[in-house]
Simulated scan of single mutants.
Amino acid sequence: MDAHQIITCEIPMRWGDMDAYGHINNVQVVRLLEEARIHAFGPPGGTAALGQDPPVPLFSSVAAGVQALVVEHRIKYTATLDYRNLPLKIRVWIANLGAASLDIAYRIHDPHTDRLCVKAQTTLAFVEGGSGSLLRITPEQKRQVAPYIGPSLFP
Rank of each mutant, 00 (worst) to 15 (best):
A48R: 15
G45E: 09
D82E: 13
V66N: 09
A49G: 01
P139L: 05
L135K: 11
L102K: 07
P139A: 04
G46H: 07
P87E: 03
P111D: 06
E35S: 14
V27L: 12
G42Q: 07
D103A: 13
E140G: 04
D2K: 14
H39V: 03
R74N: 11
L88F: 03
L97P: 02
G51A: 09
P44S: 13
S152E: 13
M13N: 05
I137H: 02
D17M: 10
T47Y: 12
G16M: 14
E10F: 05
G46Q: 04
Q67K: 10
Q28R: 15
V71M: 10
E128Y: 03
Y106E: 00
A48C: 10
I90E: 00
T80W: 05
I94R: 01
L81V: 06
P155A: 13
Q5T: 04
R37L: 10
Q5Y: 05
A146W: 01
A49W: 05
Q52N: 11
Q121I: 03
I94M: 11
N96C: 08
A105E: 06
D114G: 03
P147T: 01
H109L: 12
V56C: 12
F41C: 08
S133A: 14
P139W: 10
S60T: 13
E35Y: 11
S131L: 04
P111K: 11
A20L: 14
A63Q: 12
P57T: 08
F154C: 12
E72I: 00
H112P: 00
G22H: 09
D82P: 01
V71A: 12
R37D: 09
D82C: 06
P151Y: 01
A64Q: 09
N25H: 13
Y106T: 00
I24Q: 01
C117D: 03
E34W: 03
I75R: 02
A36F: 04
I11P: 02
P54N: 12
H4S: 13
I90K: 00
I24L: 10
I75Y: 01
P44I: 05
V118L: 06
L32M: 11
S60V: 08
A99Q: 11
A79D: 15
L116T: 09
V66T: 13
R74V: 08
I75M: 04
Y148S: 00
Y148V: 00
F126H: 06
Q67A: 07
I75K: 01
V30W: 02
L134T: 14
